[in-house]
């Protein structure tokens, strides 16, 4: 019997292994990422959470010695199949990095870049609409609407990060991957990003890697704990933080690790 209350799976990984040369970085990870939920990956440094995140839009392809085994699907479609267009994949599965990395161009151009290369908004008025909508969704519009042609790099760190989120949103992705998106930001800028994640939830499937367990607890509905390349535990965030099933999860989240 199918339980209709179960959230729809957006991305699915089965027995995924990642090798960097001789190093076995990810060891047989299987996980389903929900459409409706924010999923947080937590774990100590070197546990493989960022490496695994990067398999979800084939960012590891850019590392020559990296090798990925196993199946990863997006809406049931194998993203490592030869038929998959990687550029198209990365438009569907966008990414926001640890350090805000706007292009050294205007705010407008930062957001317009993606839609332009993907041919999404051929007419200028369409592009204006896409830029405004993306900046609005990223919670940045009110702060920058009067200076869209100033350089993106002149913004504060928190604004730059929201600009990067606007840039990711502009190509109308289905999934947004965030790798430590707040680690370079102060608490107020962090709170704005967290609020933004909350607002974006539902429209996009969101996966966030974070070192900050409180952040995982605050923003996510599902939490996955990685350790030494293994997925140790994956579950409802409130369960993971109040009643983890695995001893290793408990030791990590209560600060007894190591």
């Amino acid at each position: 019997m199918t339980d209709n209350s179960l959230p729809a799976t957006k991305m699915s990984a089965r027995d995924v292994h990642v090798y960097y040369g001789a190093t076995h970085a990810i060891k047989g990870v299987s996980i389903d990422v929900d459409q409706e939920n924010v999923t947080a990956f937590i774990g100590p440094s070197g546990c493989g959470k960022s490496t695994f995140l990067r398999t979800l839009n084939r960012m590891n392809d850019t590392i020559p010695i990296a090798r990925v085994e196993g199946d990863i699907t997006l809406d049931g479609e194998n993203i490592y199949s030869p038929a998959m267009d990687v550029v198209q994949l990365r438009a569907r599965v966008g990414m926001v990095f640890q350090k805000p990395n706007p292009f050294p161009k205007s705010i407008y151009e930062n957001v317009a870049y993606g839609p332009r290369i993907h041919g999404l908004a051929p007419v200028k008025s369409d592009m204006d609409r896409v830029v405004e909508q993306s900046l609005r969704r990223a919670g940045l519009w009110e702060e920058v609407k009067d200076r869209l042609h100033d350089s993106g790099t002149a913004l504060s760190g928190g604004q730059q990060q929201r600009l990067c989120i606007a840039r990711a949103i502009a190509v109308d992705p289905e999934v947004i991957l965030m790798d430590e998106p707040c680690s370079a930001l102060d608490p107020i800028a962090t709170a704005k990003i967290e609020e933004l994640i909350h607002e974006l939830r539902g429209r996009y499937a969101i996966v966030i890697v974070t070192h900050n367990m409180q952040q995982a607890a605050r923003v996510s509905q599902r939490t996955a704990f990685f350790h030494l390349g293994h997925l140790v535990e994956y579950g409802v965030t409130s369960d993971i933080f109040t009643n983890p099933r695995q001893e290793r999860t408990k030791d990590y989240i209560t600060g007894r690790y190591g």
Binding site: M213, A217, F241, T242, N243, K250, I253, T254, G255
Partner: peptide, 9 residues
Amino acid sequence: RAPMADDLR
């Protein structure tokens, strides 16, 4: 201390 899991309980 932001206790978690069994500590929080």
